[in-house]
Amino acid sequence: MAEDINFLKFAVNRVSDQQEFLAYFLKRYQESEEMSSDHLISILNCSQLDFYRLGLCKTPDVHADDYLDRLNRICEYANISTVELNRIIKTTGVMDSFAEFHSSGTTLMAARDKSSSSEGDDEDSETTNEQEDH
């Protein structure tokens, strides 16, 4: 039975915010490189259908012992180069780690600011309470 390419495209878009699907990595890579889907398809040297099939594959665990085997199986299924897919996964992984680190640093700084600010508030409120007691 023929595949409905419009549906596959819809499904890929739908899961592109879920890290467990490769669609997430393809989308993040496109955004970071500011390239269209068509451009990425030409880099991967595959058909549009293969591209959507690829997006609907689950993401292999990069820390798994058999990561390369899993990667090879995906690439064989989607008719794309293992080197290219590995590069996309690793590049996106690094970007995510950096974004997470940056975000946690900002959160920490914000927490510190809030903490020192609330300490000041506590002192103020104690002073106010003392004044009210009198």
């Binding site: 595949e3 099939r53 997006g55 609907l56 689950k58 199986r73 299924y77």
Partner: peptide, 12 residues
């Protein structure tokens, strides 16, 4: 990892 994609492709 490939099974999810096969599901979408073959059953949708």
């Amino acid at each position: 990892e490939v099974a999810a994609s096969i599901l979408f492709s073959k059953y949708s």
